[in-house]
Amino acid sequence: MDLEIELRVDGTEHRLTVDTRTTLLDALREQLGNTSPKKGCDHGQCGACTLLLDGRRILGCLALAVAHQGADIVTAAGLTDGELHPLQRSFIAHDAFQCGYCTPGQIVSAAGMLQEAGNGWPSAVSKDPGATDVVLDDEEIAERMSGNLCRCAAYANIVPAIAEVAHR
């Protein structure tokens, strides 16, 4: 069954017809030609497809496109605003990736995570769960980024790359 939906992706409005079975991830990659979000497991277990959906980080592989009519979506390709996002510059400077396949998801996830921390959201390792100010030390960053797997295992560079932006 096909339905027509509208999506705003990286600032551009799109009207497209999707099979009800199509995920946001496949709609972006196969129909809109935006392959910045990656398909690493299609199973909600790796984070490579992380998108900002109405400002929040989510997994594109578990979201049906028809259920997100009118959504505002941002990918790593859309984080750039003429120039690279500070996270993107920091990832390059810290060599926080190797193969690059998980990288757009890592960066989008980090952007969403910084927003969450800015809103005072706690994590599983927060020392004082009631505290409204989040201090993003390495342990906090690693816990909050644990949903983005990196098989090249660049974590020892990813965490400092994010920390540098977080502490700015």
Binding site: T35, K38, A76, A77, L87, F91, A93, T103
Partner: peptide
């Protein structure tokens, strides 16, 4: 040196096999 393909990888515009138009 920073990676030559760094910008492509951090923006997700490096083209992997499945992504060829």
């Amino acid at each position: 040196m920073d990676r030559i393909d760094g910008v492509q990888k951090v923006t997700g515009t490096a083209t992997y096999a499945y992504e060829w138009p």
